[in-house]
Simulated assay, not measured.
Amino acid sequence: MQYRSNEQETVINYDNQTGKWTIYSTYGPHARKFERALAEGARKEYTDSGTLIMIDGELNDADYRVSIARRVHMTEEQRRTNSERMRKMVEARKNGKAGQKEEME
């Protein structure tokens, strides 16, 4: 079974009395994203081919937290600068220099 587009939704709810977060999602990408955060006993539904398409249950708040973050929008120049910085960090780790600050040019 597959949910039709107009039936797909994700609802995350916080109950102030119990202090628990619950989630219900029939949108496959969200169901798969939050599957690891589900507490024991959550209900899951799969397609015939084994793809997770629905979850319903409490979130394991001991290991996860719910937050909304603003997306970072970078210019092309910022992307290039960050990419170069990451390349240098990876290179430094490969050479055993992790944790050492690079000399300023």
Rank of each mutant, 00 (worst) to 15 (best):
residue 1 M to F: 00
residue 3 Y to P: 00
residue 44 K to V: 11
residue 45 E to Y: 07
residue 40 E to L: 09
residue 86 M to C: 14
residue 91 E to Q: 14
residue 32 R to C: 06
residue 32 R to N: 07
residue 66 V to H: 00
residue 84 E to D: 11
residue 60 N to F: 14
residue 46 Y to N: 02
residue 15 D to E: 04
residue 78 Q to Y: 07
residue 53 I to V: 06
residue 57 G to K: 04
residue 104 M to Y: 12
residue 8 Q to T: 01
residue 43 R to D: 13
residue 92 A to Q: 08
residue 45 E to P: 07
residue 41 G to Q: 13
residue 102 E to G: 02
residue 82 N to R: 12
residue 52 L to S: 12
residue 55 I to T: 13
residue 85 R to W: 12
residue 69 A to V: 04
residue 41 G to S: 03
residue 103 E to R: 14
residue 33 K to A: 03
residue 67 S to D: 15
residue 2 Q to E: 05
residue 61 D to Y: 02
residue 69 A to D: 01
residue 87 R to M: 06
residue 10 T to V: 00
residue 87 R to H: 11
residue 95 N to Q: 13
residue 74 M to N: 11
residue 61 D to T: 12
residue 97 K to T: 04
residue 36 R to Q: 10
residue 95 N to F: 05
residue 8 Q to P: 03
residue 90 V to P: 08
residue 102 E to V: 11
residue 12 I to Y: 00
residue 28 G to L: 08
residue 18 T to W: 03
residue 74 M to H: 06
residue 47 T to F: 15
residue 51 T to A: 12
residue 89 M to W: 04
residue 94 K to G: 15
residue 12 I to Q: 08
residue 44 K to T: 09
residue 93 R to C: 09
residue 52 L to V: 00
residue 62 A to W: 13
residue 102 E to F: 07
residue 81 T to V: 02
residue 16 N to M: 10
residue 98 A to R: 14
residue 97 K to L: 10
residue 65 R to V: 06
residue 35 E to Q: 06
residue 80 R to D: 12
residue 65 R to K: 11
residue 49 S to K: 14
residue 84 E to Q: 10
residue 93 R to G: 11
residue 44 K to C: 07
residue 9 E to R: 06
residue 58 E to Y: 01
residue 40 E to R: 09
residue 80 R to A: 12
residue 99 G to I: 01
residue 46 Y to E: 01
residue 14 Y to L: 02
residue 2 Q to H: 07
residue 92 A to C: 08
residue 52 L to H: 04
residue 25 S to V: 01
residue 10 T to E: 06
residue 62 A to Q: 09
residue 34 F to L: 08
residue 63 D to Y: 06
residue 76 E to W: 11
residue 80 R to H: 07
residue 38 L to V: 10
residue 14 Y to K: 01
residue 79 R to C: 05
residue 5 S to N: 14
residue 48 D to C: 15
residue 54 M to H: 06
residue 15 D to R: 00
residue 98 A to Q: 12
residue 80 R to S: 09
residue 28 G to V: 11
residue 66 V to G: 03
residue 57 G to Q: 02
residue 29 P to S: 13
residue 73 H to A: 07
residue 104 M to N: 15
residue 64 Y to A: 04
